[in-house]
Design a binder for these strands. Structure first.
Lengths: 148, 148
DNA sequence: ATTTATGCAAAACTTTTGCATGGGA
DNA sequence: TCCCATGCAAAAGTTTTGCATAAAT
């Protein structure tokens, strides 16, 4: 992870220090291709550098969220949040509500809507979250749902 | 909350019993116009009917999520999930990341994208969640962010 | 009548906080 | 050197589970 890394730039630009804890959390997030839970981040950070404390991991996740480097989302019915690294501001999912698997896509074509909302509500929009829910190919074959 | 309530219909149709706990949680969710945290649901349910236990509230939230009646999401940098009732499949927000206020809108124009995804991924899409994040008029006036 | 769903209370986790100390800038 | 950020460990929350009982159908 070089110093030219855009997320590291975000940290520096905002005046935060480039500490071992923050850099390691960022490294773990970048090694993860999709979503990752806080528990997984904790485990992987510990594996990379056991000297880093849990609290610092949570503090980094919170800071990164504030800075827009990651976005916490829900992809399952569970209560454990997952984090996604924001690359270029676009990262979306189609989540199967049955098996919880998800598919990613980047193209969302929301520029017009964004411009519209900014004008009508007088807000500065910095990002968005778009998720579709439904049944994946495997699950929409036979789906009789009911009480266990 | 009448028996014709579509969410109650969903429960019945799926073969689940219409219990006090479930109906009360649903009532609380319907009284809430926007997002609500589990803690708030717990508190409001307790206010309406103190005889209902916490566990049942969580069980209801999980069941409703499975049935697509509500959707857990993240709207702040915190780690507490919030739940939104899904009305008619369209209900969106612009959330101010600073003051957490949010604005609603219904028009999202995602039909083309939906059709596209269904075809390319072979999924049956049943709904979607779209949220924009940014700064509201009050908050984008003076915002110098940085280390405390 | 049959079961499903419940309430309770304890257990299991997860996340946050306070504070003395270390490490970036 | 300065003071931001850390690690530690305990506290504070939150969510889940097991089980006997209540209450929907």
């Amino acid at each position: 992870m070089s110093t030219e890394n855009p997320h590291i730039q975000s940290l520096k630009r905002a005046g935060y220090r480039l500490t071992q804890a923050r850099l390691t959390v960022l490294q773990v997030l970048e090694e993860e291709r999709g979503h990752i839970t806080s528990a997984d981040v904790l485990a992987k950070v510990e594996r990379v550098n056991p000297a880093i404390g849990r609290a610092s991991v949570f503090r980094a996740l919170e800071l990164f969220t504030q800075l827009g480097i990651i976005r916490p989302t829900y992809i399952s019915s569970s209560v454990t949040p997952t984090y996604v690294l924001m690359h270029g501001g676009h990262h979306h999912h189609v989540v199967c509500t049955e098996c919880k698997r998800f598919f990613e896509f980047d193209d969302c074509d929301l520029e017009a809507l964004t411009a519209n909302l900014q004008a009508s509500l007088d807000v500065q929009i910095k990002g968005h979250l778009l998720e579709f829910y439904g049944l994946c190919a495997d699950c929409h074959v036979a789906d009789g749902r009911g009480p266990a």
